[in-house]
Design a protein around this nucleic acid. Sequence first.
DNA 1: AGCTAAGCGGAACGCTCTTCCAGAACTATA
DNA 2: TATAGTTCTGGAAGAGCGTTCCGCTTAGCT
Lengths: 190, 190
Amino acid sequence: MTQHTEQRPLRRDAQRNIDALLDAAKQVFGTSGVDAPAKEIADLAGVGVGTLYRHFPKRSDLVKAVFQAEVDATADAAPALAAEHDPVVALEKWLHRYTEFLATKRGLASALHSGDPTFDALPAYFIGRLGPAVGSLLDAAAAAGAIRPVASPKDLLYAVSKLSVTMSDEDPEHGRRMLDLLVDGLRYQA
Amino acid sequence: MTQHTEQRPLRRDAQRNIDALLDAAKQVFGTSGVDAPAKEIADLAGVGVGTLYRHFPKRSDLVKAVFQAEVDATADAAPALAAEHDPVVALEKWLHRYTEFLATKRGLASALHSGDPTFDALPAYFIGRLGPAVGSLLDAAAAAGAIRPVASPKDLLYAVSKLSVTMSDEDPEHGRRMLDLLVDGLRYQA
DNA sequence: AGCTAAGCGGAACGCTCTTCCAGAACTATA
DNA sequence: TATAGTTCTGGAAGAGCGTTCCGCTTAGCT
């Protein structure tokens, strides 16, 4: 999920614990919010709190790591979907995946805007990873002649996020239909 | 600042303490954020923590009360300004006052969107107090023939808030100039 | 197998939230 | 003004969480 890129590789158990903590934190952040007790996360991961603090000295480190892991997972879904489905379906499925990510992110949003400098680089990371991901899907679909060209992947990400913010307040199905509509709008008319 | 409207009037010392707590909370929220230690607020107000909890059992009660007090103060400034200045100047001054309020509110924003049901009624309170406040200033200026009629006070509040959100990131002076521009736009051309 | 250093767990400490109640302070009444 | 009755106050006490620290464990190497 996350590997350190320093000279010494991390010990196996350490890497295992980091992954377990990331999984646990993602889950706990979703249920109990970002201010959940550290022990709750450590317990769920099956490690002591000392281990948590060893790898993530500050809470913001953990939040950041969870966020990046989710961005990575979402970005990595793009090539996988592209391999399994035809271009437009892959794009559709990926955008749904992306809205799920946005829903998760909502819990982290207040933390992200808290002014902690640890989070300053995250928006750039977000665009840097997700932009190329949609970009490749869009290019593939456009190359197949299935959709019209889109000005910029970034605009699409932004538009979908706006769409899913307003949608969350009401019926979640409603948001899904709106997104489908957007994708249909991308297609060339017969 | 805030008075209880129940049958029994509040004891004098109690009312004094409530006001002191509100002042202190407003100040502390501004410097240390809404998660500041309760003791810090109590100390600044010159009361014990017990007193704080008596009047504001939940932290959200205090946040809400501070917010409402600020809304009230901002709304009450309208008639005062109207009495002292000619219509357009009063409107101008009040809008500047309003942007100051928005700046303060930013600290509370994350709390307001936290999903706590205590805060559900606040947006309505905001419009209910501030809408008529600008409304009366606009009407007075329009009646004096100084400005063109505005579709709705609510729209103006919304527009100014949008303006001041984008402005806060950069030069504060910049935002002030933009606001002045907006007010100038309201005037009838010679 | 034996050595070394990275990594682990959880006890312990300090800080904050929240409750509670004996006594102080205020108001109403005479 | 004096008194009774009530409200309100302050801070000690209990509980819970965050964070640190260090003796023990275990992976990785020879």
